[in-house]
Nucleic acid binder design. Structure first.
Length: 679
DNA sequence: ATTGGGGTCT
């Protein structure tokens, strides 16, 4: 026997002295992560306990044991000792919570926190709160986070920079950027971490622009950037394609020597790739001495984005020669490239490789395989892959749904969705992106009502995009009443330009022009500015219902508006509107004064109107242009022939029909055979 | 003893 135990046996010193020695030793061992020594000491404490039956000293030492074990990563012992402690203090609690965080047991953190609050003899401290906020953040529990935020404000830790930083991260990760902003603005001392958290948080919440604003402010304030700043701001530059800002960050990285960090280098490669500068991406990539799988994957993705899938595949080989194995992300990236280019063979090769590498059970890989086969129009193979997945996660189901949708199999998509629900898989928002169009295609009222019911119960209907799709589905089913009910149920303040456009369009398509126009003015009154899409919907509605004056007024409104420029669609609507009303010359005058050359659609609208009203003069002009703009469209010949026949000009009609048959064979420009009198 | 951080797909 040696060390402290022997000291205890001899009992030359007081218990307090020995306890202090134990504590000091344990602290040192914890700092140096010396697990073996901690274990030895643990043994000594047990011996000491037995010999002296003086638990007093051991009670002072055991909390230190817990801390040391947890620092050394020996979770089992730490847990056991912790459970045996009669009165664990806040420090021990903090260490146990840290263990939970490291193991991803966030609910355990919350349980311990509540326990700690109920103890009565001690309270959470500045080390406790960051751990608890981390747990709230990972569990996406803002409600709880807010409560604990309130608690920090009541305590003296609410003004601590580190506590506030973890609070920022919690709000940002829960999607509450406004609340994060309030905390940030109120912070007395902002550290570089605070700025980084804001930049990164805004980017993650879809506000890349604001992320850059914060970055610029940070630089203006003279805050020294670090590696995490670079890693947070570069993706924002990438998504906004701000090559110049990216280059400035790169320069700062070089100046501050942050580039030893491979994470920073990889972020730079990705930024250059996304900004389309492959030369710069390659030069950063070449400069990385020890490239990891992320460096390679970013570069591979770069070649894919620049359209060189062959080179991407070559690089994938090169990386393996260098001894780096592609991971599921690399594969997912390559497979998505094969999908969009319909490279079925390369996709199959990758599939085989993935199976041999045993990467085929990763969800991302499964999902991209399903997507790749579907995009290559091999739905059966796609389903085969899908059937072999564990089917517990929503992603493969979503991929399969979008696969069915892509291949025009709407009924299958709806059937699969039902099965998904029966198997208890919870969809997420993007699942509906591919599912809802299928319902619109089927246009089955009973199915739509079932869906409506589900969306209400599951709460997804409160998502504006999904509610908007449902309006469209009801409209496609011909049920404007339900469509309008769904529209009315959307709270006024979240109705956006898209939901208004869809309801206006729905009334327009079903010939209720007046309602469409009145909805349009309601929208403007509610403070939403019309855009090109809404104008298309409302003008379409006018032309469908023959509301000439209303249509012309709206069109004038559009011309006056600086923000909305009439495009081809709008001219098509107006020409159609005037044409149907028999005001053909007005329509033609408008076309001549158009700021750009009328497309086939505009000419088509004019020709259609000429047929209705028997106007050969303008009809021939329109036909001449149409034959030039879309020589393959035989419909235009049919229309012109119809125009001639209606006026009893049988011979001309017959000629046009011959012409139509010839075009397919001779590819001779048809318009040369038609005499154009005026143009 | 604490806080923030890279590439893909859904």
């Amino acid at each position: 026997m040696n060390g402290p135990s022997r000291a205890l046996l001899k009992d030359k010193r007081s218990l307090a002295e020995i306890t202090a020695q134990f504590q000091a030793l344990l602290k040192r061992y914890a700092a140096t992560r010396s697990l073996a020594k901690v274990k030895l000491l643990h043994g000594h404490t047990i011996t000491a306990d037995m010999l002296h039956s003086s638990l007093g000293s051991a009670e002072d030492v055991r909390p230190y044991m817990v801390v040391s074990y947890s620092r050394c990563g020996e979770v089992r012992y730490a847990r056991k000792l912790f459970d045996e402690l009669p009165q664990p203090g806040v420090v021990v609690y903090n260490h146990m919570m840290r263990i939970c965080v490291d193991r991803g047991e966030y609910f355990g953190v919350l349980k311990m926190f509540v326990e700690l609050l109920q103890l009565g003899y001690c309270a959470p401290d500045k080390y406790t709160f960051p751990l608890v906020f981390k747990a709230c953040s990972e569990l996406s529990s803002v409600e709880l986070g807010r409560v604990i935020h309130g608690q920090t404000l009541m305590s003296k830790f609410g003004s601590g920079t580190i506590v506030q930083n973890s609070l920022l991260a919690m709000y940002m990760n829960c999607g509450q950027k406004e609340e994060a902003r309030k905390v940030f603005d109120a912070m007395k001392e902002k550290s570089v971490v605070s700025w980084n958290t804001m930049i990164n948080g805004y980017f993650k919440n879809g506000c890349a622009q604001t992320a850059l604003v914060f970055f610029n402010q940070m630089v203006d304030f003279g805050v020294e950037i670090d590696g995490a700043t670079a890693v947070s701001v570069l993706p924002a530059c990438a998504s906004l394609k701000k090559l110049n800002v990216g280059r400035r960050v790169h320069a700062a990285v070089e100046k501050k020597v942050l580039g030893n960090n491979i994470v920073v280098r990889n972020a730079l490669v990705d930024m250059y790739v996304k900004c389309g500068s492959m030369e710069e991406a390659k030069s950063v990539f070449d400069g990385i001495v020890e490239k990891d799988v992320v460096s390679w994957t970013s570069m591979i993705n770069g070649y894919i984005l620049s359209g060189d899938v062959r080179k991407a595949l070559v690089l994938c080989k090169a990386m393996q020669i260098e001894g780096i194995r592609p991971n599921s992300v690399t594969i997912a990236s390559l497979l998505s490239a094969c999908a969009s280019l319909k490279y079925l063979n390369d996709g199959r090769c990758l599939h085989g490789w993935v199976m041999r590498q045993k990467l085929d059970s990763e969800v991302v890989v499964e999902t991209s395989l399903i997507d790749m086969y579907a995009k290559c129009n091999c739905v059966e193979v796609s389903f085969g892959v899908f059937a072999r997945t564990s089917r517990k996660r929503a992603a493969p189901w979503s991929a399969m749904l979008s696969g069915y949708n892509y291949n025009g199999l709407a009924a299958e998509a709806v059937g699969l969705f039902k099965q998904m629900l029966m198997e208890g898989v919870k969809p997420y928002e993007v699942t509906f992106n591919s599912l809802l169009p299928a319902y619109a295609t089927l246009a089955d009222l009973q199915l739509a009502m079932n869906l409506h019911c589900y969306l209400m119960k599951s709460g997804f209907l409160s998502t504006i995009e999904i509610a908007t799709s449902l309006i469209d589905i009801y409209s496609k089913c011909g049920n404007l009443e339900f469509a309008h009910k769904v529209f009315n149920a959307i709270p006024e303040e979240i109705k956006d330009i898209f939901s208004w456009s869809v309801i206006i369009g729905s009334y327009g398509v079903h010939g209720h022009g007046k309602t469409a126009v009145s909805l349009f003015s309601q929208m403007v009154q509610s403070g939403i500015k019309a855009n090109e899409i809404t104008f298309t919907s409302v003008l379409h509605a006018c032309s469908h219902s023959g509301l000439v004056d209303e249509g012309l007024n709206l069109f004038k409104l559009m011309l006056k508006d600086q923000k909305t420029n009439p495009g081809d669609d709008h001219y098509t609507c107006i020409v159609d509107l005037l044409g149907r009303a028999g005001r053909l010359n007005e329509a033609y005058d408008l076309m001549i004064r158009m700021p750009f050359r009328p497309s086939h659609a505009v000419w088509g609208a004019l020709l259609g109107a000429c047929v209705i009203h028997g106007n050969v003069e303008l009809g021939e002009i329109a036909a001449k242009w149409l034959f030039e703009l879309e020589p393959e469209n035989t419909g235009n010949f049919v229309l012109l022939a119809k125009l001639y026949s209606a006026l009893g000009r049988w011979e001309d009609a017959e000629n046009v029909r011959h012409l139509m048959n010839d075009v397919g064979i001779r590819k001779e420009p048809a318009h040369s055979l038609i005499e154009v009198r005026k143009m």
